[in-house]
Design a protein around this nucleic acid. Structure first.
Lengths: 300, 300
DNA sequence: TGCTGAGCTTAAGATTTCCCGATGCTCGAT
DNA sequence: ATCGAGCATCGGGAAATCTTAAGCTCAGCA
């Protein structure tokens, strides 16, 4: 197996034309260089230098090895610089995950602002719901995740992780304009016990939140439609298929639907967190976390 | 400065997910792997691994370094294979030089035959006259040269080199068909003492040979034209500008000129050699030298 | 022809590095 | 609560490496 220091030495021999020159270039004694080159020839199992008493020249095999060695030592130097740059924001890289609705007004703007300040920073994004994002951070597939959690649900296991609160998003009721309560502004959830409900498809998250809120209000919701994307949910409400409880920040005004504040049960909300690894103190991660916190403050 | 063995270790950690796995992959004890990785972190001046008591994971800097290290270790392995292959003809490479007129019927066919047998062999060719080719071989810029030398001229310094005779090319006189001797078949050079002569431009080679041959025949040639390319020389003879002494193998029949054997001075000839370095025993060089010798035998 | 110096190698000893086995620690799993 | 896997550390011995010194060979030169 070839050793990179010895390859450097061989390249230096090619460049300077002598072992003494190579030794000077790498800062060692000619004797050491000679010995190391002899070892390299043993490693390579080939004669690399043609020796005469007063000079050396590369053999055919030596030239071939030098040609291979040059990109290797260049790569080593580049690797050294890259890992040094990794200590700065610009040289770093960061893999971000967030749930879908957070990206529009929170994650994407924060990443954009970071990109403006650090154009060299290598940022990548993956859309992941919290139940996937948290293990992804823990297992190192992702460096930073933006997650959400409905009030009243158990917090995910945070061992080894560093969650930080970004904002709290109250849940509001979306109803068709044709609904009798559409003009009320403030409503109680139990007023909609008989209504058709639009909920999520998966057992996690949206669906569970809707059912729990309804049960807190004392009824079992009659689910008429299921969709995981809030945009689709709003379309279904607009089509008159039912009402839905959604995080306020996901609401986009459109004809035919109305957003109503919910007074009881109180404090129905979704909290949004940024999650990183406890052990990850890389400047890039820190910088994006700070950018997210700052951006979240403007949304509150 | 980063060490390649330690980089292999880091890559193995990335691949196996543990230091123990990496140690097993590289065939050392976990303790050694742990120590070497610690040294690598010192070398890189960065924390590469995030350690917990029971497991280890790459840090951000570690991932960056792994991404740089993969092509490096791949390159090292490739270099090892390449230098091993350099011991065979196919894996080798050979840089050939020859003077212009040898290439058509000697060097190019020999290289072509070698290519048929060893398509992988990396062959490159440079046109060099002997006075440049011999130093080029000695200094390692070229591995094999085909040179010529006019009989009676001093042999070039062959120290450190291995010249081998390929063929002897007699010199013949080329005259216009209009010449009074054009029908003679055999001529003496002194019969052309009064003729106009076509010779070379440089003091080396062709020009010196013409002048020396004339002096051997007892006259000083009257040079009417100078050209270094034998094709041009033949054209000039055809145009009636004079006569010329050329190696027979360079003669290409064309209308208007005639090739005459020269009886005196005797043994006017050019010898052609293949020159390699004494110390160069690479299979590729040997193979091409053999191919040249074989090809030359068919031309004799 | 013999001297001189440059450049390479070898030798020997000292120092550093490296590796292994043992030990202790932590944490997840049973 | 115990066990076991995986990592770090420690200590000693082995191996590699470096340095200095000496020897060798050859080119250049008087």
């Amino acid at each position: 197996m070839l050793d990179s220091y010895r390859l450097r030495l061989l390249v230096a021999v090619a460049d300077t034309g002598s072992i003494a020159g190579a030794a000077a270039a790498l800062g060692c004694s000619p004797a050491a260089a000679s010995q190391q080159l002899a070892v390299l020839e043993r490693e390579a199992e080939a004669q690399l230098l043609e020796r005469s008493a007063r000079s050396v020249r590369l053999s055919s095999a030596g030239r071939i090895l030098v040609d291979h060695a040059r990109p290797i030592v260049a790569g080593l130097d580049r690797a050294g610089r890259a890992v040094a740059a990794a200590g700065t924001v610009d040289g770093g890289r960061i893999r971000v995950a967030s749930f879908a609705t957070a990206s529009r007004r929170l994650v994407a703007p924060a990443m954009a602002s970071l990109r403006r300040r650090h154009p060299q920073l290598d940022q990548t994004f993956t859309e992941l719901e919290p139940e996937d994002a948290v293990p992804a951070v823990r297992e190192g597939r992702v460096d930073l995740a933006v997650t959400h959690q409905y009030a009243g649900f158990p917090a995910p296991d945070a061992r080894g992780l560093h969650p930080e609160h970004l904002l709290t998003d109250p849940l509001s009721l979306v109803v068709p304009v044709s609904d009798p309560h559409a003009g009320d502004g403030q409503v109680r959830l139990e007023d909609f016990a008989a209504a058709g409900w639009i909920s999520g498809r998966s057992t996690q998250g949206f669906q569970a939140m809707t059912e729990m809120a309804a049960r807190l209000a004392g009824f079992e919701p009659r689910i008429t439609s299921r969709a995981d994307s809030y945009g689709v949910v709003l379309n279904l409400v607009g089509a008159g298929l039912g009402v839905a409880l959604v995080p306020r920040s996901t609401f986009v005004a459109r004809p035919g639907i109305v957003l109503l504040n919910v007074t009881t049960p109180a404090r129905l909300a979704r909290t949004v967190h940024v999650v990183t690894r406890d052990s990850d103190h890389s400047p890039a991660v820190r910088a994006l976390r700070d950018a997210l916190i700052k951006k979240a403050a403007t949304l509150r």
